[in-house]
């Protein structure tokens, strides 16, 4: 870890301004991403993971306001850049596979032509026709599509193929970071598996960094080196994926893992998480998880726990992380 990080998110705070008041969507989130690293952000809907992804590209919603913090790409604060300079980084340095992007292809243009358009917008100097065709063919091969498919229309693609084409488009300008927001949601398991394997392979070959964003902790387990668990706008635990899955330290992470059914291992009783996520218009005081937390003490409702480093690269924001059992409950299901 001696090399400087590619991307640093430093104490980022972002609110959505609404009629009813400010929604605290991202609260004091910090993490780094190194060359070739695969980071996963996992959490439930409304936990702020997509808000972070959009912020990295500065494509946040119009009513979003950055209260404080920085997002540094190679040391340069993206939040301070004027829009036209930001546009140069977008796609070239950071590309994104949007949630539901597979349904965003324009039905009346050939898929290859739509990728070509992206190339023309971002690639300098502009590629010649031959170069562009060559490049698109290579991209298609990379994501496991027949290059001849570039001349086809979106409706001739299946869901999985469309998603592969979306990934090809994200790769088109050799970005150093790809953000994949729910890249396989709405796909069937077999196709999901194929696409995840493809992404892993590409990442290995090109040495890119990827940020996976998903609600599905099993998907994150499969493809990432580092995992960040988010709850109600806060990053509550961050660490090596293997370590966090083996020894989750934040009660939310612990309960999330305890309540994830699996097809492997013993058939165990799952512990339901009581209650529902808080309304971020008016988040709970102290630790945002305390109303649902079985380990909560009085301190949790008053003081906000800071992110504490408990081992190399493993950080957790909880006053009582020592109380959390060492491994997941394995109570067998009756």
């Amino acid at each position: 870890m001696s090399a400087p990080p590619l991307l640093e998110v430093d104490h980022l705070v972002m609110n959505y301004v609404t009629e009813k008041g400010d929604v605290s969507a991202v609260e004091d989130v910090s993490f780094t991403l190194h060359q070739g690293e695969a980071l996963g952000l996992v959490g439930e809907s409304g936990c702020g993971k997509t808000s972070i992804a959009m912020s990295l590209l500065r494509l946040q919603a119009e009513n979003a306001v950055f209260k404080s913090g920085e997002i540094r790409l190679n040391g340069e604060n993206l939040l301070a850049l004027p829009e036209d300079e930001m546009r140069r980084h977008r796609w070239k340095d950071i590309a994104m596979v949007f949630q539901g992007a597979m349904n965003a292809w324009n039905p009346v243009y050939r898929v290859g032509d739509q990728i070509r358009e992206a190339l023309d917008l971002h690639f300098r100097p502009r590629l010649s026709d031959a170069e562009a065709t060559e490049r698109i063919s290579r991209l298609f091969e990379m994501v496991g599509l027949n290059p001849a498919m570039a001349n086809r229309y979106p409706h001739e693609f299946s869901g999985g193929m469309r998603q592969r084409a979306v990934i090809a488009m994200a790769l088109s300008c050799d970005p150093s970071i790809i953000i994949a927001d729910e890249p396989t949601t709405a796909l069937d398991v077999i196709v999901q598996d194929q696409i995840l394997q493809e992404l892993k392979k590409i990442q290995r070959e090109l040495g890119m960094a990827i940020i996976y964003i998903s609600h599905d902790i099993a998907v994150i387990a499969e493809v990432t080196d580092t995992i960040g668990i988010m709850y109600a706008g806060k990053l509550v635990e961050l660490g090596p994926t293997v370590e966090v899955f083996a020894r989750p330290k934040h009660p939310y992470a612990y309960l999330l893992l305890s309540s994830t059914p699996s097809v492997t291992g013993p058939r165990r009783k799952l512990a339901p998480l009581e209650g529902e996520p808080p309304n971020l218009l008016n988040p709970p005081t102290g630790c945002r998880f305390h109303p649902r937390c079985p380990f909560a003490t009085e301190r949790c409702s008053i003081e906000e726990p800071p992110m504490e480093t408990i081992a190399d690269g493993h950080r957790v924001a909880c006053w009582n992380w020592r109380e959390v059992p060492v491994s997941i409950a394995q109570e067998a299901r009756p």
């Binding site: 999985g160 193929m161 077999i190 598996d193 194929q194 387990a221 899955f245 893992l257 699996s262 492997t264």
Partner: peptide, 25 residues
């Protein structure tokens, strides 16, 4: 078998068997 081996497993140390299936649906 293919379906089962394609299911993501919430265990990063688990080595999944390859999914043996041809083509798309």
């Amino acid at each position: 078998r293919a379906l089962l081996s394609a299911v993501p497993v919430p265990d990063p140390t688990y080595r999944k068997p390859p999914v043996e299936i041809k083509g798309g649906i």
